[in-house]
Amino acid sequence: MNETLTAVLTAVIPIVIIGIICAVVLVVASKVMAVKENEKIPAIRECLPGANCGACGFAGCDGYAKALAEGETTATNLCVPGGDTVSKKISEILGVEFEDVVEQVAVIHCAGDCKYTQDRVEYSGIQSCAAAKLIFGSKGDCPYGCLGFGDCLKACPNNAICIENGIAHVNTKLCVGCGLCTKACPNGLISLMADVERVVVTCSNKDKGAVTRKACKNGCIGCKKCEKVCSQNAIKVVNNLAVIDYSKCPDCDDFGACARECTTGCIMLSDFSGIHRVK
């Protein structure tokens, strides 16, 4: 017993002593040679949500707090998940005027669920969109559409995404607009949109009309009818796919005409109010 104890102690004691010496040296060094950091950084960091989502364009919340405190950026409205409340707090700390945050929600530009399109192959590999895309490009008829394995769902910190009928849906009432899902989708189907908008193109197929039609009954066939009915010239068909310029939407006098007239119904009219507008 005694021998074991001695053996253990001869190993433990030197390590502990060396560890303590190192610790003391490091603590003393960090106190003596401390570099003064801007005291606004922890204050701003405190206000931010701490999701480290990168929606502001900086490396996490720490990066944004540092950039604000050191004057790299003056925009206090970059934190989309935080919304107006965070922007107000930051503006108070920095003593600048409050800037309105454009609240955003994620929208999925694919509505080709199992009613509109069908599987081309039977995929039984790793249940992930990225893996399925690597093998056949897609498992369904449409090579652009939602694969439905929920890579976005896994990326979402707020459980705002669900998979129904084989494709992903965003519950905008839960979406904070962090944009993590936009990076997770291997087909790039998800984009962020200001949550005041009411129309959205729910297709990303860039094939010619006939090809698209064959793959999915919901697909945009590029018929340009929306271009014609839009009173503001806000819709353009680019690469056989309708694209809406939302900056022109507020002036629209016949709102929702594009969705009403869309031949395949891929332009949808709906309420996308996000979490920040839920009272």
Binding site: I15, I18, C22, A23, L26, A29, S30, M33, A34, V35
Partner: peptide, 25 residues
């Protein structure tokens, strides 16, 4: 026999110390 663990310990603290010194001076 303590070589590996002692070296890891010392190198890690050394690098931290170097970083602190560099940051200051």
């Amino acid at each position: 026999f303590l070589q590996t663990i002692v070296f890891i310990l010392v190198i890690a603290s050394l690098v931290q110390l170097v970083e602190i010194i560099l940051k200051r001076y």
